[in-house]
């Protein structure tokens, strides 16, 4: 058969010569390689004490942003839920009442906003879809937990801390 690429390498099983058959040179070569690694700096880290820096475009836990006056930006349009390929996002919209202007920026807001972190695949499509720049995947890793229900994060965990705090 014609080779599809010129990367093909013909391997031939030559009988071992004397130096190869007494194994010892190969063994000492191997020992030399491993002892070199003995003095090398370990590539692993002591995790909870040391942490690796995340890359700049790392996508972690979601956060719902506030604007410059500390009002929630989300207007519960549902575009994030629609764009989510894993269907991890659900929300219930509500109308802003009189006197709540300093809490919500738009006239409509998300009364309930839940992300199922077990379904989320951290693709970042929600932050691309958001017209209000309200959701960003700029948090750390999602921590572990014991129960499935504890992975459904509501607004208490997602919304950014208020400005005056």
């Amino acid at each position: 058969m014609e080779p599809l690429s010129n990367k093909r390498k013909v391997l031939e099983a030559k009988p071992l010569n004397f130096m190869e058959r007494i194994y010892l040179p190969a063994i000492f070569q191997g020992l030399a390689i491993t002892i070199k690694h003995f003095f090398r700096k370990p590539v692993t880290i002591r995790y909870p004490e040391e942490k690796r820096e995340y890359s700049e475009n790392f996508r972690g836990m979601h956060s719902l942003k506030r604007d410059e006056h500390g009002r929630e930006r989300c207007t519960a349009c549902g575009l994030c839920a629609l764009s989510c390929p894993a269907e991890a996002i659900t929300m219930i919209a509500a109308e802003r009442q009189k006197g709540e202007e300093d809490l919500y920026r738009e006239e409509k807001y998300a009364a309930v906003y839940e992300i199922n972190m077990l379904r989320c695949i951290f693709c970042g499509l929600c932050e691309e879809a958001c017209p209000k720049e309200a959701i960003y995947l700029d948090g750390p890793h999602v921590p572990s937990d014991y129960l499935r229900k504890d992975f459904i994060y509501g607004k208490d965990k997602l919304v950014e801390a208020p400005l005056n705090q």
Partner: peptide, 8 residues
């Protein structure tokens, strides 16, 4: 073993 495998 850890040092030989670049671990801690």
């Amino acid at each position: 073993a850890a040092f030989l495998q670049d671990r801690v």
